[in-house]
Design a protein around this nucleic acid. Structure first.
Lengths: 207, 207
DNA sequence: AGCGATGTTGATCACCCGTTCAAACGACGA
DNA sequence: TCGTCGTTTGAACGGGTGATCAACATCGCT
């Protein structure tokens, strides 16, 4: 039995989907190569440089293939974000399941490898609403998961200090992000002191 | 006596400057209008949209005028950043000179009006080295000034908590930035708690 | 009045962009 | 073998971009 052609529904009229263009399979190896290249371009030259042609050049593929797998640029950027988000989720899960989940989480927040890309997407969110919605969704889910875990581990201890797990999640993430962001700008004044202060605080919580 | 023509030295050869193009005066009112328009465009549509033509459109001026006052796009972006940095400096000076400098500084960090633009420039810094250098310079100067002031005001109190003024400057700034940034993404889980935690901490320091 | 510095304008160069299209290629089932 | 589908390719469209230029307008000085 021949397969039905793989197309994309662009719109609908009176209940009938309008077929527009064929689209590549999600499992394609070429597709993965394009996402790889797009992530590299965004990392190296910023989100503004993530044009289909430049991505194709980096992937050593003809530009049309990019549009075959990602009809619009938003589709491509979304794919890059989703894959990065998945990796972040996995890293957080691993941290929360480790022997020392709190310090592992703090270590994750100060990890430079993911944060640079994350910053680009935050900037992107300002004027690409499709991406903005996805970032919002993912950020809230991450926060909820972290808050639940911190509450389970440190709830009473935090209450003693007039704090909540939600506040701790926000403050840990913000301090980590700031350290990474400023390091990227070659600004490091006060970083050692700040890091020490945070770690001392974690020590008192985990004592 | 006639003035020497106002030009820009693009390069030099054997000690003689090469005259290239005329350039508008810094004091020009038109120039200020262009910087205004550029800042608005960056705010609304992101730094990637800050093209000379779009800026000119917003300023209701012909595009060539933008290049008359700002020969390259970097020149324009730098001018926008420098003006914003000056305004930030003024706001910080005002905060540090107020009745309650510490809480005023915290209030400044959580102010939304400046931070959105600052985020755009951080993203820009990743691939525009001229701007990156300026941001680094300004960030370090801001940090130094804040640290000195906080140390004068709270030095001993902070030492009691095993902290330094530099750490406090980093942590206050990071928490404020994070709150503003996430608010821009419609992420607000834990924000009230975090804000309360910071303000409680300030209360203990200022008691 | 004349001249040069300064401000302004519209046209133009070569380039990159997102997107679309028609045509080919390769594999696999009928 | 043929047809079909997923994949790949190269070319094309309309449009936006940074930058440059020659010309025109304005103003102040001599």
């Amino acid at each position: 039995m021949p397969q039905a052609p793989c197309v994309r529904a662009i719109g609908s009229y009176a209940g009938t989907m309008v077929q527009k263009r064929r689209i590549g399979a999600e499992s394609s190896e070429t597709r993965a190569r394009i996402v790889d290249a797009a992530e590299q371009v965004i990392r190296d030259e910023g989100y503004a440089a993530a044009s289909s042609r430049r991505v194709a050049l980096r992937a050593e593929l003809p530009p049309s293939l990019v549009h075959y797998y990602f009809p619009t640029t938003d589709d491509l950027l979304l794919a890059v974000f989703r894959r990065g988000a998945q990796q972040s989720d996995a890293m957080i899960d691993q941290a929360l399941a480790s022997d020392d989940p709190v310090r592992a989480l703090w270590h994750f927040f100060t990890d430079t490898s993911r944060t640079a890309l994350a910053m680009e997407f935050v900037a992107l969110a300002n004027h690409r609403k499709a991406i903005r919605a996805e970032i919002t969704r993912h950020s809230e889910a991450m926060r909820a998961r972290q808050t639940a875990c911190l509450d389970r581990l440190l709830g009473p201890k935090l209450a003693e200090q007039g704090m909540t797990a939600a506040a701790m999640s926000v403050l840990l993430a913000s301090a980590g992000r700031a350290l990474v962001m400023e390091k990227g700008l070659d600004v490091s004044a006060g970083h050692d002191d700040a890091r020490q202060a945070v770690e001392r605080w974690l020590d008192t919580l985990l004592a």
